[in-house]
């Protein structure tokens, strides 16, 4: 094969700026922003009402803003776990196929740029849009907490809050890569959106149920288990490993470690491991980060893996519609 000359980054800036401007000005983005804002603020606001009356002595009061659920409303992180994929898919599902359908792709690629710049520019613009939205929302909630609780957050709370923000952006990046992949795979924007949303439903709703069935089939209930009422450890571990294929699980576990400083393990724990442990005592930040490091790595790796898939698919595509 002949090696190509010239930099794959040529034109990346132009694509990024154009796509970012498109995203920020689009009606679609406006709808998604309002959706996130209203549900997010709603969840936090009701959480604040509870926090004011109950846990005045909590050392991690600000983190409770994110995690406290006021029935029947879900907690803020539960809302985000649901809405981030929706926003990311909304931003990316027609990234490439719309260029085909508008017949602009051949014009763009006839300019002296490689396809790399177009795909990466679109991904980065989507990620930047998502990040801008999440940072704004995060600041809003911190402000709301300051005003309504009247207590400033501690340094560790800020750091844990920032770590939460970073994980949320990584999670968004993964779903953006899913959407981008679908937009390369499917020529019709509707099909692409449907496929991405279908995958999202599968991993967030159906996957936990399916995992339980699979684990049950592979590790059937033994008589000893029935008699002693002990769970089968092999099955539990297998079930957890399988459920971690879903980015939702990874996101949930990562946030559990970061926002609940008392979390010491994300899998099954034996009694002897708890010997000498101060139950409920918070872990230092570094230990919490260490605990969720594999989850975060998994999210980033998933995003890169899917982006590579989209890249290979896009490189092999014929330009003519």
């Amino acid at each position: 094969m002949a090696t190509r000359s010239g930099s794959p980054w040529t034109g990346l800036g132009a694509v990024f700026v154009k796509e970012l401007a498109d995203h920020l000005g689009s009606a679609r983005m406006l709808i998604l922003e309002w959706l996130v804002l209203l549900t997010g603020i709603g969840a936090v606001y009701t959480a604040i009402q509870d926090l004011k009356t109950t846990t005045q002595q909590d050392p991690f009061l600000f983190l409770r803003l994110f995690t406290h659920a006021h029935q029947p409303l879900p907690s803020f992180i539960a809302v985000l776990g649901f809405l981030i994929p929706l926003v990311a898919i909304g931003l990316g599902f027609d990234a490439i196929n719309s260029e085909f359908n508008r017949r602009t792709l051949s014009r763009v690629l006839a300019q002296p740029i490689y396809r790399d710049a177009l795909l990466l520019g679109k991904f980065l613009a989507g990620l930047a849009t998502l990040a801008i939205g999440l940072v704004a929302l995060w600041l809003l909630i911190m402000g709301l907490g300051l005003v309504m609780l009247g207590v400033p957050p501690s340094g560790e709370e800020m750091l844990r809050g920032l770590a939460f923000l970073a994980v949320a952006i990584a999670y968004g990046g993964l779903w953006l890569a899913v959407a981008l992949f679908c937009s390369v795979l499917f020529r019709s924007a509707a099909t692409s959106a449907l496929a991405a949303l279908g995958l999202w439903l599968l991993v967030s709703v159906l996957w936990p149920i399916i995992v339980r069935f699979i684990a049950q089939a592979i590790y059937p209930t033994s008589p000893a288990e029935l008699l002693l009422g002990l769970p089968n450890l092999g099955r539990l571990e297998f079930q957890q490993a399988l459920s971690r294929i879903s980015p939702n699980t990874l996101f949930g576990e990562a946030l559990l470690g970061i926002l609940h400083p008392g979390t010491r393990a994300l899998g099954p724990v034996f009694l002897e491991q708890l010997q000498g442990a101060l139950m409920g005592a918070p872990l230092p930040l570094a230990q919490s980060l260490l605990l969720v490091w594999p989850q975060v790595t998994g999210l980033v790796a998933g995003a890169i893996f899917l982006f590579v898939g989209a890249y290979v698919g896009f490189q092999r595509q014929e330009v003519r519609a």
């Binding site: 002949a2 090696t3 190509r4 000359s5 010239g6 300019q111 002296p112 490689y114």
Partner: peptide, 10 residues
């Protein structure tokens, strides 16, 4: 050669 120097050609 457009295969080798696509940017220069384009």
């Amino acid at each position: 050669d457009p295969r080798r120097d696509p940017l220069a050609v384009k």
